[in-house]
Design a protein around this nucleic acid. Structure first.
Lengths: 255, 255
DNA sequence: GCATGCTATTTTGTATACAATTTTGAGTGT
DNA sequence: ACACTCAAAATTGTATACAAAATAGCATGC
């Protein structure tokens, strides 16, 4: 059974402090929250790969805290679906499950579509500026020549954050929270499974169209575009997964 | 600030062991799970009223366990949105918030509608029998003459469970989980805020129509009915809340 | 050489002890 | 009578100790 070996953070996530060593008082919340954020960041970015077993002691030692806050963080992560734990067998980073991926996108089509409709009605001038700025940031990151995984990941993150922000603008807090939960999982999977493929590409044009519709206040069009975008993303991801699976089968047959 | 006084269970929830005294090995899972179930049942049924402050020590003492499993249960409950806790100020059973109620029903319209569509396609003969049995149970409970709150609550619970089962039949596990989370909250509110009103009535006929459509395999009709039913429930609840609010205002003005 | 059973280690589950912070309340001064 | 201060109590946050269970490794027997 693969055992976790915590690697140093390759890069920092904006906003979140991905803790290595003692997580100081940077985030002056409770330790539990800090551990939660740190672990979540490590999982979502694939630094702790899916399927790896994670023990409380290791994490506690790495982060130089006691097991208690680590346990509580694990509880929350389990609730998020990022780790799965059975009674006395510890926790495992949730493995990729193509069926769950399908389910997630099926729900996203509903929720994202609705959130985008609401956002088109509710967006203030400030909100619109914020969305446009995110698009610009995406463009900037995409235009960097010979970019590394770091830039690729940043582009992915901004692209997904765009949907989080749209959900926030919708004004329905519960909707926002639910979508964020789903997006965390998707991000985790996309990053760990797909980003290494050269063919990966964020649908920048689709994002731009959606933002345009929101800025124009055209709720119906924004919703339609968003739903189509989710379907497109799903198909794109499933296609890549298929290619990856084929490749693996090819390797297996060759050996 | 109101302090919690745990009351004895007035009646037991089917399936769940609502723990009073030491929660024995009935559920042979971990203590954390037992505490979680017990607390959740107490909150959902309003035995611990919204707004009451809940301290770890009280619960731990009542259930004769240490604070550790209680803390972990609180963490999960907070994640469910049934209690809200601020860093060093303990936990409070989430208070009723009419806006959150609106948000929940807005999302339910999407998710319940979709789940019902899926269920109409996916339901097996066994599933259909199960749904019909639940309807029959509802009828039976409704027909009891001079029924007490106990029967009223049971009818409510079966009526809500119907939606949980439909979501389960849909086959989309994530959808099922999300809907269950929302329904828990709604049940909690309906029970604590509205059930005392005589006008409260479950829409038995609407439920029957939905089940009929599912059994007929008519996905489109089932979905349409489900969405209309959710809207109807929302309007019904909001109307009752308005009446309650008016009543309170009347009392306040009179004094 | 392989399977089986036992022990030893690891790891989680629970309890308790301690620290830090917030709340409460009494007491004092105006 | 009211407000303010400070101390004591209560409560959560964290650490550690102990118990129970599961895993892993080794030895033994076939």
């Amino acid at each position: 059974m693969r055992r976790l070996r915590l690697q140093l953070c390759v890069f920092r996530l904006k906003g979140r402090r991905s803790g290595k060593g003692s997580l100081a008082k940077e985030t002056k919340n409770t330790l539990r929250d800090s551990v939660y954020s740190a672990l979540k960041a490590m999982i979502v970015t694939g630094q702790i790969p899916p399927g790896s077993r994670v023990t409380e002691n290791d994490i506690a030692a790495k982060l130089t805290v006691s097991r208690t806050p680590v346990r509580e963080a694990f509880n929350r992560l389990e609730r998020d679906g990022l780790v799965t734990g059975r009674p006395r067998q510890g926790y495992v980073v949730t493995e990729f499950d193509i069926n769950m991926f399908r389910e997630a996108f099926e729900i996203r089509e509903l929720l994202d579509g609705h959130a985008t409709e609401l956002a088109a009605t509710a967006a203030t001038a400030q909100d619109k500026a914020r969305l446009r700025a995110m698009l610009a940031e995406c463009e900037r990151l995409a235009a960097i020549p010979e970019r590394t995984n770091r830039e690729k990941f940043q582009e992915l993150e901004v692209g997904i954050d765009l949907h989080r922000v749209i959900a926030e603008i919708s004004g329905n807090v519960m909707l926002h929270n639910m979508l964020c939960g789903i997006l965390d999982k998707c991000q985790h999977y996309v990053w760990t499974e797909l980003l290494w493929l050269d063919e990966w590409k964020i649908a920048r044009d689709e994002h731009a169209e959606i933002v345009d519709a929101i800025c124009a206040g055209d709720a119906a069009r924004a919703g339609t575009l968003a739903r189509a975008h989710v379907r497109g993303s799903r198909d794109n991801v499933l296609r890549l997964l298929q290619a990856k699976s084929d490749y693996r089968n090819f390797l297996a047959k060759a050996s």
